[in-house]
């Protein structure tokens, strides 16, 4: 059983017909040739397939493409400028050697981008003290190493680049 839909992938409207069973990840990789999100586990246990869906980070392997007609999807490829200039997070990953094999990297970078926005919006993590801002208005959460480590724990890296990843994100978060 197939469905027709349009996804706005990295700023481009892409219309396609998918088998309802096709995950967002497989739609991107196998139908649209957008292979920046990676398939590491296919069960939401590694984070390699992380994309920004409507601006929020999600694992694209655990959601069906058919449920996202009209959605904005941003991959790590789309975070870079059209002229090839890298996103600050991407440049920081390069500078801090925030990867080795590179397979988890696009997911790490999308996750970091989503995470920075969450912290800016005042979303807490397990590492955040209880309580909220004056008058109950959420205020941005300062991101120390412990915060970044906890918030990035949904992105596994088997090469063990975590320390450098945290350094890279801190360099951007501090700006």
């Amino acid at each position: 059983m197939d469905s027709q839909l349009t996804l706005h992938v990295d700023g481009e409207p892409r219309s396609l017909t998918v088998d309802n069973r096709t995950t967002l990840l497989d739609a991107l990789r196998d139908r649209l040739g957008v292979t920046s999100p990676k398939k590491g586990c296919d069960h939401g246990q590694c984070g390699s397939c992380t994309v920004l869906l409507g601006g929020r980070r999600v694992v694209s392997c655990l959601t069906f493409a058919v449920a996202h007609d009209g959605a904005e999807v941003t991959t790590a490829e789309g975070l870079a400028e059209a002229d090839g200039r890298l996103h600050p997070l991407q440049q920081a990953f390069l500078d801090h050697d925030g990867f080795q094999c590179g397979y988890c990297t696009p997911g790490q970078i999308c996750s970091a981008a989503g995470m920075l926005a969450e912290a800016e919006a005042g979303h807490p993590s397990s590492a955040t003290a209880d309580g909220d801002g004056p008058g109950g208005v959420p205020r941005p959460v300062p991101l120390d190493e412990e915060e970044i480590r906890e918030r990035m724990s949904g992105n596994l890296c088997r090469c063990g680049a975590y320390g450098n990843i945290v350094d890279a994100i801190r360099a951007v978060a501090g700006r």
């Binding site: 984070g47 980070r57 999600v58 993590s125």
Partner: peptide, 25 residues
């Protein structure tokens, strides 16, 4: 904000589960 202020146990339990990406979905 109301959950964080009044029901810390709920906020903490949610944040102890899964990952940022999964909690977003």
């Amino acid at each position: 904000p109301l959950v964080r202020r009044r029901l810390p146990v709920l906020s903490q339990a949610l944040l102890a589960g899964a990952s940022g990406q999964l909690r977003n979905a």
